[in-house]
Design a protein around this nucleic acid. Sequence first.
DNA 1: CAGCATCCCTATTGATACTG
DNA 2: CAGTATCAATAGGGATGCTG
Lengths: 104, 104
Amino acid sequence: MSQQPRPDAPECYCRLEGVIDLLSRKYAMQIVCVVDHLGTARYGELESAFGGDVSSSTLSARLDDLVSADLLEREQYDEIPPRVEYTLTGDGESLAERLEPLLR
Amino acid sequence: MSQQPRPDAPECYCRLEGVIDLLSRKYAMQIVCVVDHLGTARYGELESAFGGDVSSSTLSARLDDLVSADLLEREQYDEIPPRVEYTLTGDGESLAERLEPLLR
DNA sequence: CAGCATCCCTATTGATACTG
DNA sequence: CAGTATCAATAGGGATGCTG
């Protein structure tokens, strides 16, 4: 989907290259914002934050994406019933801050 | 693609609703940034800013999207050869500013 | 130059059903 | 509860060729 940054392209264009693919995915930015808002969020909380709008497969995929990108941290507690908590990493928080201006 | 905002959803999620669909489209944010960078941009300038990476149909579509969203203004000069210039509207500039933090 | 129309292809998303 | 697997639907994007 994305290509190599072009050396002759404006820097403003190049700079977006890295994050853009991830952030363009559905609910990606929203998840970052919601987790930032909640501080820590469980899977179910995210699901209900979006109402019935997200399918579990999509939400799962997006969470994986964000964890892989090191924006989100996944903490799993081996209890019954199972509990998983997502929090923003440093990078995630930094992104959330940069995202906030977009909310107005 | 997008649904009605849910009254019980976190405001951070609701607030993104409006812009998100548009900004998620390929090259949308980049175009805003490039036009902001250049001040005013012709179609061909945008095309070359992205190298050969954008097809003309996609670039066209995205420009239309942005014009429809009132983020970009299209000024057409009836000359031969034809000349078209794109500039950011007030909203567009405002968005560009909010986008800038993302570039770091 | 600055595009639009068409066709087609792929990536992404959603629905549904099932599991540790 | 917190997912995964599978399948089907779709929207977005690229290639190509043509216009004012």
